[in-house]
């Protein structure tokens, strides 16, 4: 290896190592800080402390952990399942039953991709208030179910679905909904898995809309709890760290278990 090549390789390693360190550091910081007192955390202590048990105990006394976790899980899982069912039906429908009218409507659906949430939240809030749905989980889920991203993702993936399978099933006398349920869904399971990962993450981390709609401690999700703990006048950062760990753990787990689907879903849903 000649000298310039050696320096170039070394430079690349330094660049990557720095980027990797900076990327991971906040996660390490979160874990280390969960063992420190609030004062130690804001004065930048990087060593492992002895306050972990106290922080956990304080977190459990300040927060109804099982309830909050149940709220988050319920909202995220239900909303994700509904999104996937409704959007895959639409993606399949738009691709398999092509017509001029539906193609035009599909273009309009794609147009909703550029609607910013800020322009929806006031009418949505008024709508929910009128229907008496403020402070309910249904109000959180309803506006998230129809997602142009996921419809698009399913339509794109459906292009790879072999129509011969569908024709054969038709000859066997299966109805359209049976073809969808018994043939399309099993064949497309990796598409479903990728969509699940990506939609679950979005729902689990959803913040602005729940912040508007959920107003009592009984309905709050983990994201809201972390946010309100951290925005206290004197936040107890030790307690906050336990909250961030609990809020991040499920998405980290999903990511490590289904990394391939995660990347596939991310690239596919926005391409």
């Amino acid at each position: 290896m000649n000298a310039p090549r050696f320096f170039s390789t070394a430079l690349q390693y330094v660049f990557l190592a720095t980027a990797a360190f900076l990327s991971i550091f906040p996660f390490i910081w979160m874990v280390i800080s969960s063992t420190n007192t609030s004062i130690d955390i804001i004065s930048g202590r990087t060593g492992i402390g002895e306050a972990f048990a106290t922080n956990v105990a304080n977190f459990f006394t300040q927060v109804d952990v099982p309830l909050v976790f149940w709220n988050s899980t319920k909202v995220a899982v239900l909303a994700t399942l509904l999104t996937i069912v409704v959007s895959s039906l639409a993606g399949y429908g738009f691709e398999m039953f092509r017509s001029k009218a539906r193609d035009r409507i599909y273009a309009l659906v794609l147009l909703t991709l550029m609607v910013p949430f800020a322009a929806l939240m006031i009418p949505l809030f008024m709508m929910m208030a009128k229907s008496g749905l403020i402070n309910t989980h249904i109000a959180i889920m309803l506006p998230t179910i129809a997602s142009a991203f996921i419809i698009f993702y399913f339509r794109q993936s459906t292009k790879a679905f072999q129509t011969e399978l569908r024709d054969a099933a038709k000859v066997d006398g299966l109805k359209e909904w049976q073809i969808f349920l018994y043939i399309y869904v099993p064949v497309m399971r990796s598409t479903y898995a990728a969509a699940f990962v990506i939609v679950f993450m979005t729902n689990w981390n959803n913040y602005l809309w729940p912040l508007i709609v959920l107003q009592s401690n009984e309905t709050k999700t983990i994201t809201l709890v972390v946010s309100s703990l951290a925005s206290a006048y004197y936040p107890d950062y030790g307690v906050v760290m336990i909250g961030t760990i609990l809020a991040t753990l499920p998405t980290l787990l999903v990511f490590f278990v289904m990394q391939r689907q995660f990347v596939q879903g991310m690239l596919g849903s926005v391409k």
Binding site: I105, M127, I145, A146, E176, F180
Partner: peptide, 23 residues
């Protein structure tokens, strides 16, 4: 074809199209 896309279209109409016009 319409039955498959109906649920999505209905939800989009209520929770996207109506609010943006209402805004």
């Amino acid at each position: 074809g319409w039955l498959f896309v109906a649920p999505s279209l209905l939800l989009i109409a209520i929770f996207l199209v109506y609010p943006i016009l209402r805004s």
